[in-house]
Computed example of a mutant assay.
Amino acid sequence: MIDALTWVVGLAALALALWCGYATLRDQPTKDWHFAGMAVVSLLALVQLVVAFVRLGGGGSPADGTAIFVAYQLGAVAAVPATGFLSLSERTRWGSATVAAGAIVLAVLEVRLIDIWGGGHG
């Protein structure tokens, strides 16, 4: 794992959570610019997935097991797009709240990925 990339994904997810949380407070649904932010965060998570698979293919090994690591990686890639699609069906403030929650989940998954890989020592 590349710790810097993991932290960038996590911090970008938190920024998205704050942004969508602010929209929730303002009683706004997700808008086009929120989806642009979701795309950026999702792309970062996808880049991380590719890097993780390259590291695994190159002989890297997570301390807590490959299966759990891959499962967390796939969950990280899916968290924001899944809640983004859900927000399309809920065109109220709660759509924004759903995306904010998904982004927080992604940030937590990123912290957990560091632990799974080896506590930031890889």
Rank of each mutant, 00 (worst) to 15 (best):
M1C: 11
I2W: 11
I2P: 12
L5Q: 08
L5S: 09
T6G: 08
W7Q: 04
W7T: 08
V8R: 13
V8S: 07
G10V: 00
A12Q: 01
A12T: 02
A13D: 08
A13T: 06
A15R: 04
A15I: 11
L16S: 03
L16A: 05
A17C: 12
A17Y: 02
L18H: 14
L18D: 15
W19T: 11
C20Y: 06
G21F: 04
Y22E: 15
Y22W: 15
Y22F: 12
A23N: 14
T24E: 07
R26H: 09
R26I: 06
D27W: 12
Q28A: 07
P29T: 09
W33L: 14
H34E: 02
F35K: 05
A36V: 10
A36N: 05
M38S: 10
M38F: 03
M38G: 01
A39Y: 02
V40H: 03
S42E: 08
L44D: 04
L44G: 00
L44E: 01
V47F: 06
V47L: 10
Q48K: 04
Q48N: 06
V51D: 13
V51G: 02
V51I: 13
A52T: 14
F53M: 15
F53S: 10
V54A: 14
R55H: 09
L56Q: 14
L56E: 09
L56V: 12
G58Y: 07
G60T: 07
G60H: 07
S61K: 07
S61D: 12
P62Y: 03
P62E: 10
D64C: 08
A67N: 14
A67C: 11
I68G: 11
F69Y: 15
F69K: 01
F69H: 10
A71G: 10
Y72F: 15
G75C: 13
G75D: 15
G75K: 01
G75A: 11
V77N: 02
V77D: 03
A79N: 07
A79S: 15
V80E: 01
V80A: 08
G84M: 02
L86P: 00
S89G: 12
E90P: 04
E90Y: 06
R91H: 14
T92G: 13
T92I: 15
S96R: 02
S96Q: 06
A97L: 15
A97S: 13
A97N: 08
V99G: 00
A100P: 04
A100R: 00
A101E: 03
A101C: 14
A103T: 01
I104L: 15
V105R: 01
V105D: 02
L106E: 09
L106V: 06
A107F: 00
V108T: 11
E110H: 01
V111R: 05
V111A: 07
V111E: 08
R112N: 09
L113R: 13
D115Y: 12
D115T: 15
D115L: 08
W117S: 02
W117I: 03
G118C: 07
G118Y: 02
G119W: 09
H121A: 14
H121G: 09
G122F: 04
